[in-house]
Amino acid sequence: MSRRDMFAVVFFSIVCMFFIFSALLMHPFGSPDETDMDDMIIKNTQRETGANNGVTSVVFDYRGFDTLGEATILFTAVAGVVLLFRRMKET
């Protein structure tokens, strides 16, 4: 076992401890702590956006910038895949 592997094992166990303890210290499942923003969205979604579906109104209206970034990432990934395989087809 080299020194590099030792370092990897130590790092891995520290991160494992971190995740397990934070999973045990979370709030109890089924009762989230801070819900003011979501309560506001649930109460006003029909009046403000006119849509029955709260999730769609969050995706396209309240948090439209997230969807814009997601669309950009999809576009970039498709461009990358097409570029790589086009070069592969030629060679």
Binding site: Q46, R47, T49, G50, S57, D61
Partner: peptide, 20 residues
């Protein structure tokens, strides 16, 4: 798509939602 639906539980109207 410009209508505002009845607030609360309804049966769903296609002509709502704005730009969504």
């Amino acid at each position: 798509f410009g209508d505002i639906p009845m607030v609360g539980s309804n049966t769903g109207d296609m002509n709502t939602g704005g730009v969504l």
